[in-house]
Simulated assay, not measured.
Amino acid sequence: MSSSKPQLVYWDIRALAEPIRLLLRYLQVDFEDKRISFGDTSSIPSVLTPWFIQKYSHGLDFPNLPFYIDGDVRISQSFAILQYIARKYNLYGDTIEEQATIDMVSQVVNDLRWAAWVTYNDPNFRQIKDEWKTSVPERLGDLNKFLEGKEFVLGTKISFADFLVYESLEWYRQCIPEVFEQPELANLENFQKRIAEIPQIKEYLNSDNFKSWPFFAPIVNFGFSKDEDFKALPFSYRNFVAKYPLDPQ
């Protein structure tokens, strides 16, 4: 995989790679957004087969998606990729205090993403959705309070954390948009609009390069298909590992 351009490689979904795409688009980095299509979406693990065919062929220390290749740098793990790009282009704060704030917010956002992910993976998601929705304003309340009076996570200074926050909130907005109409989440709503209006981001969101859907793989109850009757593929960890052991063959 030789190229003079940096390459971001991930599934053809938003999920963990979209904050990286947003960051790169904001920085106007000329990169290759390489997307791996799913295989046979009628069964697990066949849906993930395209990745496992090539998993150990990229020279990665820890083969995983997404991964990023920038010259001699080859790294996996979405947070590591974000941090690498942010350090390279000076979007990781200017002081140790600012960096601590970015790290703190990043971990808070990771908790919020995990809460959404667990909910969307619940086999009874459609039955619990309304009840879960009532808990979201409180769950997002601290972040809403934190952003009060701020343009960005660091106040008036943009950082990679802003794109992480933006996309993570979209995990909620796409499922329960009405929640963001509530006055108690006005800071989050205004933050989302502010990020979307940044010229480079606005251009990206209105371009053919941006794919608003799907968010997640077909093993998740929400985010792959907009069909209300969509049933996620049953995922068995035991069967998955039996088919694709952790050790390379």
Rank of each mutant, 00 (worst) to 15 (best):
L112C: 07
N121W: 01
N110M: 11
A116C: 12
D122P: 00
A115Q: 13
E98D: 04
D122C: 03
V108E: 15
V109K: 02
D122Y: 01
A116N: 15
E97T: 07
F125H: 11
F125I: 14
V108Q: 10
I102A: 03
I102L: 04
A116L: 14
A100N: 13
T95Q: 04
Y120P: 02
E97W: 10
T101F: 11
T119H: 08
W117G: 07
V105L: 05
D111P: 07
V109G: 00
V118D: 04
E97G: 01
W117P: 04
D103Y: 10
V109A: 08
N110E: 06
D103M: 10
Y120S: 00
L112T: 13
V109D: 05
N121Y: 05
L112I: 04
I96K: 03
A100C: 07
D103Q: 13
I96Q: 13
I102P: 00
E98P: 00
P123A: 02
V105K: 02
V118R: 08
Q107C: 13
R113T: 04
V118Y: 05
D122M: 03
V108S: 12
V109T: 02
V118N: 05
N110K: 05
I96F: 12
V105F: 03
W117V: 03
Q107A: 14
S106G: 09
V105C: 01
D103V: 13
W117Q: 15
V109Y: 06
R113I: 03
W117E: 08
A100F: 03
A115K: 08
A115C: 12
W114Q: 11
F125E: 15
V108H: 01
M104T: 08
V105H: 02
R126F: 08
V108L: 15
L112F: 14
F125V: 07
T101N: 12
V108M: 08
R113P: 00
V105Q: 01
V108C: 05
D122F: 04
A100Y: 03
Q107Y: 11
A116I: 12
T101L: 13
T119D: 13
Y120R: 03
W114F: 12
P123K: 08
F125K: 03
I96A: 12
N124W: 00
D122L: 12
V109E: 09
T101G: 01
Q99R: 14
L112W: 00
A116M: 12
N124E: 06
W117M: 15
E98F: 01
